[in-house]
Design a protein around this nucleic acid. Sequence first.
DNA 1: GCGACCCAGTGACACGGATCAATTTTGCGG
DNA 2: CCGCAAAATTGATCCGTGTCACTGGGTCGC
Lengths: 225, 225
Amino acid sequence: MTTARTPSEQLTIYSGLRDEERARVDALATQKSLQAHAYLIHQHSEANCIYMLEEGVLIMERSSASGRRQVMAFIYPGNFIGIAQNEYYEFSVKALTDARLQEIPAKAFITLQDEMPALKENVRRIGGNILAHTLDQVFALGQKKAHERICFLLQQLQDRKSSNPAGMIDLVMTRQDIADYLGLTIETVSRAFSKLKREGIINIHSAHTVEILRPDEVREMALSD
Amino acid sequence: MTTARTPSEQLTIYSGLRDEERARVDALATQKSLQAHAYLIHQHSEANCIYMLEEGVLIMERSSASGRRQVMAFIYPGNFIGIAQNEYYEFSVKALTDARLQEIPAKAFITLQDEMPALKENVRRIGGNILAHTLDQVFALGQKKAHERICFLLQQLQDRKSSNPAGMIDLVMTRQDIADYLGLTIETVSRAFSKLKREGIINIHSAHTVEILRPDEVREMALSD
DNA sequence: GCGACCCAGTGACACGGATCAATTTTGCGG
DNA sequence: CCGCAAAATTGATCCGTGTCACTGGGTCGC
């Protein structure tokens, strides 16, 4: 979803649940941890579990037979995986950093929703947010130029609570990951960053740390409505 | 979703419901009809209803302040609108032809799901299909060349039961609609069609009727995994 | 501390798609 | 059936991004 639609308090499956209800959800969950570069999900595998990320950053990607790769999302703490899934995952999920997450069996989770309307409602809304995010991405890929797509990404990262204050953004992912997320090549990503820096819109402290100097212009270019 | 994932029988909110359950859903619905070019939904309006299309073809689009337009989907009979929506619609929906649809108040529909797990499950799966479709579109826009995107669209239209037999496809939409769906210009769309025709992959009977001559090659180019 | 490797940045050039312009075709109202 | 307007096609040219090649910098292992 775009910035304006993002509520300041993060929506989770627990939102608005009573303590005993939370306990029932927690009872289904098991802790899981993941090392950097390890895979959590392989494309086309059965969608047996849903996941909630607690710490670290993951990347969701799809690769085609012809070897092309599209990054669908970067996943940050508080985000969910597999919540709007049918029989099979249609993407892989890999850790960019060491990560810690909760794993919940999909079947049991779905059953539990039948008894807990509040939980069902949370899931529904999370699903809505995921779709909204994906539609924003469609707009960016279909309509935006390279430097605007970069702003689209920067704005998304900025909007996540995990980002540092004062417009400093930590780019955990590589240029290749960014390129595959935005439908560009690494060279074009690099040049777009340079262009934004030349124009004084951002500052590049290191390849993985950029600072937004003119947030209004970044937001303007990122917008899709 | 891609072809392989499309079940031959169409998933609706009624799938697997008992007669008396269907009746309860139907009790919420009101018939609505729409003339060609009329709007059903305006971007940013409150998401009060969900819709099921019974007849005709609709287009789902988003326009930005800068005047750019992205078509998110073409909607055919049996498809749903607004089922994975949060507070506001983030797109407009317009009729391409005269259309007839069922309108169901969102609030009541959500409440009804609390009492009917089978209904809830249908909605969940429809939501999953919508997301899958949107992820396919992300892949196409991010990774595919013009003529491959055209095949992507042709394959989608082919997969809908409403299309005529034997590879004949009726393009209800204009070249501009196609261009805005695929992130191209009308000229590029036109040239891509010509190229596919030149190569003997399709035949163009009229601007709005194309025939797929080599279905395997079309599918191959349309695939995203 | 040195070399190897990986990642990022940049320049030269190529190419696909956008833009601009002209023409043809289609669809529709009279 | 004719005439007009809108839609689609086609050609010429331009521009943004991709491709290829090279360089620099950071990191890790030895």
